[in-house]
């Protein structure tokens, strides 16, 4: 089943002489439950693409449909709510809130929505991430790997249909990297969540179902490794 469709997506930064075409007329679609790796040289437009998929930035041209919803047709508030419920974002720098505890950081999307936290779901995630004993810690009391687990927890708490991760292991050693990727794969299989991961690491890319390579803002190659 098609979960996400990208049509003629373009993004130009700046104006006039200094304009940079970061994405140039990109189209593709992603099936539900698919694990997609995006690779490409630095500056090729990977992060730009991911942000457009996540509704964090606005495209210059083109459309993004998620479960038939044209996300850039939504107004600001609707988009914010849609994003919070349907999309989990994970960054290279864990982007945790230093004043909030592990528990508060993980449940923040629900708290912002003034939703009741599903305690069963929360416990399950925390257990998988191995953070049970760290719930009252502040981020600066955690290791890098633990912090990234917290940010994964936050991305997953609202049970989104898509996880978008921008170099989630970029700051971690190989042991921690493997653990994080294994966790993401586990969630991908357990909850049938769609997973899009930007990576420079070939070993990670090779674990994906499909690898899209971006060069100069266009799709250079789109290979399905595991159908």
């Amino acid at each position: 089943m098609e979960l996400m469709r990208i049509e003629n997506l373009s993004k130009v930064y700046g104006k006039g002489d200094t304009a940079v075409k970061a994405l140039d007329n990109v189209s593709f679609s992603v099936k539900q439950g698919e694990f997609v790796a995006i690779i490409g040289p630095s500056g090729s437009g990977k992060s730009t693409l991911l942000h457009l998929l996540g509704g964090v930035d606005k495209p210059t041209d083109g459309k993004v449909f998620i479960e038939k919803t044209d996300i850039y047709g939504l107004n600001e508030t609707q988009l914010a709510i849609f994003r919070r419920r349907q999309i989990g974002l994970i960054y290279q720098f864990y982007n945790l809130l230093p004043i909030l505890t592990v528990e508060e950081n993980i449940t923040l999307p629900m708290l912002l929505d003034a939703h009741k936290v599903d305690q069963k779901h929360f416990k399950e995630i925390v257990e998988i991430l191995g953070l049970q004993k760290r719930l009252d810690y502040l981020p600066n009391q955690l290791s890098g790997g633990q912090q990234q687990r917290v940010s994964i927890g936050r991305a997953l708490i609202s049970n989104p249909s898509i996880i978008l991760a921008d170099e989630p292991t970029g700051n971690l050693d190989s042991k921690n990297s493997k653990e994080i990727i294994d966790l993401l794969k586990l969630f991908n299989k357990t909850y049938n969540q769609t997973l899009v991961v930007i990576t420079h690491d070939d070993r990670i890319a090779l674990q994906a179902d499909r690898v899209i390579s971006i060069e100069d803002g266009t799709i250079a190659k789109d290979e399905v490794i595991r159908p």
């Binding site: 508030t77 709510i81 994003r83 919070r84 974002l89 720098f93 982007n95 809130l97 923040l108 912002l112």
Partner: peptide, 14 residues
């Protein structure tokens, strides 16, 4: 705290 404030914004906080 730039980053912190950015997180709120990216999570759709007004």
């Amino acid at each position: 705290r730039k980053r912190e404030l950015g997180i709120y914004l990216s999570l759709g906080e007004k």
